[in-house]
């Protein structure tokens, strides 16, 4: 009984913590920009971007 109360509190507490601190969601803004910047730094001749031109990273058809 006590164990089940503790388990319930831990689970709800964890869920509340992750919800409140928005854990695991993609982040827009500076973090996104720096991530993209790093990605683009790695581009070189012969990479997908230069082969495909402006459309090289498009996910669409």
């Amino acid at each position: 009984m006590l164990k089940s109360i503790i388990v319930t509190l831990i689970l709800i507490g964890s869920g509340f913590f992750m919800s409140a601190f928005l854990v695991g969601y993609p982040v827009a803004g500076k973090k996104y920009i720096s991530k993209q910047r790093e990605k683009r730094k790695s581009l070189r001749y012969g990479s997908a971007y230069f082969i495909g031109g402006a459309r090289g990273f498009r996910g669409g058809k």
């Binding site: 827009a28 803004g29 920009i33 993209q36 971007y49 402006a54 990273f57 996910g59 669409g60």
Partner: peptide, 19 residues
């Protein structure tokens, strides 16, 4: 915008794509 992906410094804060 046509060359937006070619910029070393991204302009956008966030992007999503879909079909």
């Amino acid at each position: 915008f046509t060359e937006i992906d070619a910029r070393k410094e991204p302009i956008e804060s966030y992007v999503i794509t879909g079909d």
